[in-house]
Amino acid sequence: MNARTEPAEADTEPDAPARPPLIREFLLVAGLFLVYKLGRQLATGHTGEAYRNARRVWHLERTVHLPHETAVQSALLHGDTLVRLANTYYATVHFPATLAFLVWLYLRRPAHYVWARRVLAVVTTAALVLPFTFPLAPPRLLTGTGLVDTARVYGPSVYGPPSSDHLSNQFAAMPSLHFGWALMLAIGLIAATRSRWRPLWLLHPLVTLLVIVGTANHYWLDAIVATAMLGLALASLHPPRRTTTTAGRGTGRPSTPEPVLAGASR
């Protein structure tokens, strides 16, 4: 007499979706990054308005009692090593981490990849509107705040003087896509995986938040607005559901465990 055991179960993508064509996706993702860079550059100018808006944001944060950005920066300035690590994180992690996130999803979770790419596209496109309507100087360029331009003083820096920097728009601080993309990376990996440790992905946006504020590249409000934009995108673009299927059957539907019949004979 043999005990009848339950079949093994495995996580699968819903209905085993096929990966989108690689060349098309490469062009779409490359276009997303290009729109991010060129769109912000097209919004150059309005310097005076950018500084006036910066003063408004600074005073608004103090009025609503948000934490002072100088408190975060003071922690970084306890040693040259820590502040240089923060500057390096700001300069080098943003694009490679997002690209690695999309590549992994494309290879391992195609349905989640399509969802994440759409969310990032919506957030990035929406974020490019604000530099035209609300140009904003970053806190490192704002005098009288007590903040230090850590990248310029300690290095490495990705920006030159605003008057001669033709590769980026330094007056497009609102919203912070550094933080918005980092938060989407964490949310996307939490949604697409089943590891008990997956909440640890939230450390990436947390570190990113401390870095962008501590290096005086962004205000708290920049991250808050980015979070709101991401929330609206996620509310309209829902992630695909992961389903648990019986191994070897590939039904794409949740399985129903069969009872164990301890005394059954064949």
Rank of each mutant, 00 (worst) to 15 (best):
G214Q: 06
P7S: 12
A16W: 14
R62T: 13
V129E: 01
L27Y: 01
D165Q: 01
H59G: 00
V57L: 13
S176Y: 02
R152C: 03
A97N: 04
D80G: 02
L105H: 11
E6W: 10
Y36W: 15
D11L: 15
D149C: 02
A223S: 14
V29N: 00
R242Y: 01
R62M: 11
L60H: 08
L82D: 01
R118C: 06
V158R: 07
A121P: 05
T63M: 12
A121M: 12
L27T: 01
A262M: 05
R198N: 06
V211C: 04
W115D: 03
I190A: 13
Y106T: 05
M184F: 06
V83F: 02
G144I: 08
W104P: 02
L147D: 01
L99M: 08
S164Q: 12
W104I: 09
L60A: 12
A127F: 00
A216S: 09
L210I: 08
R108C: 11
T133I: 13
T70W: 11
I23Y: 06
G146E: 01
D149V: 02
W58Y: 14
R24N: 04
D149Q: 04
G39L: 01
L34I: 11
W115P: 08
E258H: 12
A262S: 06
F101K: 08
L136V: 09
D222N: 04
E61F: 06
V213I: 14
H59I: 09
G45R: 09
I23C: 06
T193R: 10
D149E: 05
H112Q: 13
Q170W: 12
F33L: 15
E69M: 11
Y51F: 15
E9C: 14
E49G: 02
A226K: 03
I212C: 02
A50K: 10
A116F: 08
T243A: 03
R196V: 03
R40P: 07
I23K: 08
A116K: 05
T125Y: 08
P21Y: 08
K37W: 10
A172R: 06
P156C: 06
L147I: 10
D15I: 13
P7R: 13
H218D: 00
E9N: 08
L185R: 07
F33W: 14
G263I: 03
A50M: 09
G39D: 01
A137K: 07
A50E: 03
T92R: 11
M229L: 15
A3L: 12
A182Y: 04
G144N: 04
M229E: 10
L85M: 05
F95N: 00
S236G: 06
Y154D: 06
T92H: 08
V260N: 01
L77M: 11
L230K: 05
L230P: 04
